[in-house]
Design a protein around this nucleic acid. Structure first.
Lengths: 216, 216
DNA sequence: TCTCGATGTATCGGCCCGATACATCGCTAC
DNA sequence: GTAGCGATGTATCGGGCCGATACATCGAGA
């Protein structure tokens, strides 16, 4: 899962580990607070061994905060890496629908085609519906066996499930009708930006409608 | 974390592994779907080595489903195990407040005293408030940098945070006023039960109210 | 009879985490 | 000026937990 996220971020721009961790934290803030270095560096090593990324010593192209010449290592994605990213993004294993897996896939939805988005959204909905049914069963059948706190926990969990299902339905509806994820229409006004570069997919040039919100 | 859950369940009645897994699944259904055997058995081994539980061959006291004489192993908690359980339950490390840790502690709240419950509830609230602030920051400051899907994910996460904070506030209020977790007052009618005993204290033999369901 | 699904115990490779160790940079305080 | 401090930065280690896998028994229906 982390592999996918790293590849996705490096696709936008090369980075060194520390930066990667921060970007990961803001992009996946909902999923995991912050990735551990004990995970990050071994994963980067794996990725490098597999040929999906390359390391290079610090080049002096970074202007903003740093001009140091210390041992900073900049990671860069390769062509194989981009291909790998597209594969991981589109393929759907069972782990695609658990909390972490779904979150990562969703976070990179702007790099996917609509069919894939719908498939993942619906798979996730199915998964949550199953969890919801399990909780309902427990609450109706096993209620007498459990204490008040445990029941309260289940009730809260059930509530969260129902809410997530509704959220997914909204997203699915929007997706089908070709709109962007206008969904919950929060208090925030999205400041446009991000022409969302089209065409990612190693070999497929399509990258459909995506009305999104292009500026003139 | 799993250690705590196992000890907690074995405190109610001895069990074998398979049964333990199922109980774990219904008690912690919100937290984790089902514990893996690749986790369960090694943990049981650890617990046994540490002297917190004992193994014994299948005794013929189990009536309901099985009368087999195969290699079923029944696990039973020891006095040290009960002490350990009380310690784990009351102590508050940082991992007490993450999703899994909090869930397990909450599921065993009926075995804790009110002061501990309040401490944990408030610690959890603090944790979630921090996550919430982080998401708000991202949504207001980094919004332009992120695509619509990522933003939608953050919005949904923020929503979940706000909801959980409100839930926790309710629980804290109830706890302070001495009521049971009547909290969210869902569609379900809570079958009363559980006056929520006070005082747990490591070695006390009391084993409070716990109506449970003993057969004749 | 025979296969199938539930029950049951157990191990292995691998991902990921928290703790820890180091080293440098820019800032403020003394 | 220099001493400390917090942010930046790279890296390893032990351990928890997961999914896949293997194996064995039992009751019930084809």
């Amino acid at each position: 899962m982390l592999e996918l996220a790293i590849l996705g971020l490096l696709q936008e721009t090369p980075m060194h580990g520390y930066e990667l961790r921060k970007e990961l934290a803001t992009k996946l803030g909902t999923i995991r607070a912050a990735i551990s270095y004990g995970t990050l560096y071994p994963t980067l090593k794996r990725l490098k061994t597999a040929g999906f990324i390359t390391e290079s010593a610090s080049d002096p192209s970074m202007i903003p905060p740093m001009t140091s010449k210390r041992g900073r290592v900049v990671y860069k994605i390769t062509a194989e890496g981009k291909e790998r990213f597209a594969d991981l993004l589109a393929q759907a294993g069972p782990e695609t629908y658990d909390d972490a897996g779904f979150g990562v896939h969703f976070a990179f939805f702007s790099r996917t085609d609509r069919a894939t988005r719908l498939r993942i959204l619906e798979g996730r909905r199915r998964r949550i519906e199953e969890r919801r049914e399990g909780l309902r069963d427990v609450l109706s059948r096993a209620a007498g066996r459990l204490d008040a706190y445990t029941l309260e926990l289940q009730r809260h969990g059930l509530d969260a499930c129902e809410r997530e299902v509704r959220w997914l339905e909204e997203l699915i509806t929007n997706e089908r009708s070709g709109r962007a994820p206008a969904a919950s229409a929060g208090t925030f006004d999205v400041p446009a930006a991000e022409p969302a570069q089209e065409r990612t997919a190693a070999d497929s040039p399509q990258e459909p409608p995506r009305p999104h919100k292009d500026r003139p």
